[in-house]
Design a protein around this nucleic acid. Structure first.
Length: 494
RNA sequence: GCGUGGGUAGUCUAGCGGUAUGACACAGGCCUUCCAAGCCUGUUGCGCGGGUUCGACUCCCGCCCCACGCACCA
């Protein structure tokens, strides 16, 4: 059980994450990573790449620009649909979405109106502030994208990308050719995205600059399922909360094949299983803290035909929180770019010509890091971060038991050797217990200590973070033993 | 953006119209044969700007930032 303050305080104290620019009072919606945060994030990213690119030989990582010109984002729908028309009360200052004010007054949909049109209708309908009955000010557009002026004249309007996905769609044809015209084709980006959030909240949860890890899988809906081994996951129970239950705390376990029976495509369910495996097995999230939450038609974006959020329950943020999503975007994006660019996005594959459809596996990296800090935080006599060993920023701590009799020299030599292959921390300050405690706080799973018996050729001790148990290991076997411990082939339990 | 509460060292905290308390952490030293021991020494702070005042961390105003609730989150 970790409160928000617990996680943030540890995070700041131990170099994981903190508010950006705090020298100048802070900058809402922006966070910086410290040395341990970056290490941890890289390990999360490595596991993510290993897991999801490992799904197929035809899935690859690419990298694209974070600034996109207006036409590209016009085609994606972001210029028009990522905008709300806001109306602010001149008396109480409350802001409303213009379309919602009109909808409340007329019970009709009012999408796609210009600010001037909304002003006119507010006048005609004599709408006043729902909060204080004050007079409403002029409607103004608010786009969640950060606009930029590119070049000396600034004529070429551009924006910071609101999602990494568009970078993939813009490069689909290039990669389809370079990868010799295969479907399904997976293209992933781990990179920064930007949204001008109205009110950023809860630390790394809602930021204005954030990291996404997204895999876009391009496929032919007629044949996608044929190439997947659905039978391997058919009886796997998937944690599901339906749209009507998303405010409730729990989830159902529903076998993958039963989800298919409820009209979810097999290829979609197959990937739900893959995502669930990443969280339960890879990141060791407790089963009851994980679920997919369905979004109903009103909640999901217009281009998403099927949308489940990936949610993890975390004490510091008050319950289940979205850390990613599994989105069936159909052929919306490629179609949009084809229409705007006038360049054909259709491909010929397996005898048929089609615009590929897209399944998007989307993850908020910062949210995942926060989630893992929350879940692994445990406070007894001292704080221990029970991170999965593969995710921990530092993998091994190396110490001399005392600072005399040649023990430090021996330990430093050991450290120099281990650090060639692992992230290792050497420490000879304070007592041995204090050093173990330091390692516990940043989640280091194993600590190696050189004592007097080491000098007699009897090996070193290896201490496990969670159990505080120790085993004695011959120096010659140390790297091998550590590898096996990290791989989970050996445990301390036995 | 609205409302409520808040902002004192790396973290957590005490306090007052006369520039600040303690704990932990951190650094150096002594000691130490395995879990934040002890002793000595040391570093670091009143979110920012303006006003009132002889003097502001303290009172007033504005701003920034944080948490919570509302709204927002294609």
């Amino acid at each position: 059980m970790a409160s928000y303050d617990d996680v943030m305080s540890l995070s700041v104290r131990r170099g994981f994450l903190w508010p950006a620019v705090d020298l100048y009072g802070g900058f809402a919606g922006f966070y910086d990573y410290g040395h341990n945060g970056v290490l941890m994030r890289r390990r999360w990213e490595d596991l993510w790449i290993e897991t999801f690119l490992g799904l197929s030989d035809d899935y690859h990582l690419i990298d694209t620009t974070t600034i996109l010109p207006e036409p590209a984002l016009k085609a994606s729908g972001h210029v028009d649909h990522f905008t709300d028309i806001l109306v602010t009360c001149t008396r109480c200052g409350e802001s409303y979405r213009g379309d919602q004010l009109l909808e409340a007054a007329t019970h009709e949909e009012h999408e796609g109106l210009t600010p001037a049109e909304i002003d006119a209708r507010i006048r005609d309908l004599k709408i006043r502030c729902p909060n204080c009955k004050g007079e409403l000010g002029p409607a103004r557009p608010f786009n969640m994208m950060f606009p930029l002026e590119v070049g000396p004249t600034g004529k070429d309007r551009a924006y910071l990308r609101p999602e990494t996905a568009q970078g993939v769609y813009l490069n689909f044809k290039r990669e389809f050719e370079a990868l010799r015209r295969r479907l399904p084709l997976g293209l992933a980006i781990i990179g920064r995205a930007y949204r001008n959030e109205i009110s950023p909240r809860q630390g790394a949860y809602r930021m204005r600059e954030f990291l996404q890890a997204e895999l876009q899988i391009f496929f032919d809906p007629a044949t996608f399922a044929d190439g997947l081994r659905f039978d391997a996951v058919a009886s796997t129970p998937i944690r599901i909360a339906w749209a009507t239950e998303k405010n409730q705390p729990g989830a159902h376990d529903i076998a993958a094949k039963d989800l298919v029976a409820r009209d979810l495509p097999p290829w979609y369910v197959y990937h739900l299983a893959a995502v669930q495996r990443f969280y339960l097995d890879g990141l060791q999230v407790p089963r009851d803290a994980f679920r997919f939450a369905e979004l109903d038609e009103k909640e999901r974006a217009f281009y998403n035909k099927i949308h489940f959020d990936i949610q993890v329950k975390q004490e510091s943020l008050g319950g289940f929180k979205e850390v990613g999503g599994v989105h069936y975007r159909t052929d919306h994006d490629l179609k949009g770019h084809e229409a705007m660019s006038h360049l054909k996005q259709s491909v010929t594959f397996g005898g048929s010509k089609l615009i590929p459809h897209v399944l998007e596996l989307s993850f908020g990296v910062d949210r995942n890091i926060w989630t893992l800090l929350d879940l692994s935080y445990s406070k007894g006599e001292r704080v221990v971060l029970r991170l999965p060993p593969r995710i921990a920023p530092v993998t091994v701590g190396v110490f001399p038991l005392v600072n005399k009799d040649g023990l430090p020299e021996k330990a430093e030599a050991l450290h120099a050797n281990l650090r060639k292959r692992l992230t290792v921390s050497y420490d000879e300050s304070g007592s041995i217990g204090r050093r173990y405690a330091r390692m516990d706080e940043i989640g280091t799973p194993f600590s190696v200590t050189v004592d007097h018996e080491t000098l007699e050729g009897k090996g070193v001790t290896v201490r496990e973070r969670d159990s505080q148990k120790q085993i004695r290991v011959k120096e010659a076997d140390l790297t091998d033993t550590l590898d096996r411990l990290l791989a989970g082939e050996v445990t301390f339990g036995a």
